[in-house]
């Protein structure tokens, strides 16, 4: 039997994927929003003067970056409830996993960007009597944030793709929705291709949007 690409199935699949897409987007945005807060917090902690916050930040960052996200997801969803005696709903678990995972990478982005700012900036801030906190808030952070945008955009794309791993904990995201369609239609080629196309459209759009944002920011200071 010869393989025939089934165009109608391909086109019918795409609207059917939208329900999954909704979860993919919710988890990506929710996870990254929380992940950014975690990343900012631990990234700055890694730059602390005291060894204790610094060590805590290093433990978090290395533990997450040194283990596969799939293992983190299984541990949080199946492992932790054994110890704590409470089950987390899949969607919430998905958001937490993306947050905790991206937070570790974002912490390194934050640390690197903050450290890349000329130390003379902090000295100038301190020399006019600003506290360390205000120097960070008004002088270092705004400059560092601009440098974070390209790597944050990159992390955005990575985390979006990583949400597909969450199918193992039963989150009805894009890939799992595709899998369910295959289960009834047996058209694996068309359906998974449609899934891939949807991911690709999103990642390319993000990359595009970021380039526009960067140019815009560039213009604003150069003028």
């Amino acid at each position: 039997m010869e393989f025939q690409f089934d165009w109608p199935v391909f086109f019918e699949t795409i609207p059917m994927l939208m329900r999954g897409l909704k979860f993919t987007i919710i988890i990506t945005l929710g996870g990254l929003g929380a992940g950014f807060l975690l990343g900012a917090f631990f990234g700055l902690m890694k730059l602390a003067r005291h060894a204790i916050p610094r060590t805590l930040a290093i433990i978090y960052i290395e533990a997450i970056r040194g283990t596969p996200m799939l293992v983190q997801a299984m541990f949080l969803y199946y492992g932790l409830p054994m110890a704590l005696g409470l089950r987390i709903p899949p969607l919430t678990a998905g958001i937490i996993i993306i947050a905790v995972n991206s937070g570790a990478y974002i912490a390194e982005i934050v640390r690197g960007s903050v450290q890349s700012i000329d130390p003379g900036q902090a000295e100038a801030g301190r020399s006019i009597g600003l506290t360390r906190g205000k120097t960070m808030l008004y002088i270092i952070w705004p400059q560092a944030f601009k440098r974070m945008i390209p790597p944050l955009g990159n992390q955005f794309i990575i985390s979006l793709k990583d949400t597909s791993l969450l199918m193992v904990i039963g989150v009805g995201e894009l890939l799992r929705t595709g899998q369910e369609i295959v289960a009834v239609s047996y058209k694996a080629f068309e359906v998974y291709l449609a899934v891939a196309v949807v991911y690709l459209v999103m990642t390319l759009s993000i990359a595009r949007g970021l380039r526009i944002l960067e140019n815009h920011l560039e213009m604003k200071t150069k003028r």
Partner: peptide
């Protein structure tokens, strides 16, 4: 400072 260290933003 020698290098001015103005806030560029």
């Amino acid at each position: 400072f020698q290098q001015f260290n103005l806030f560029p933003h």
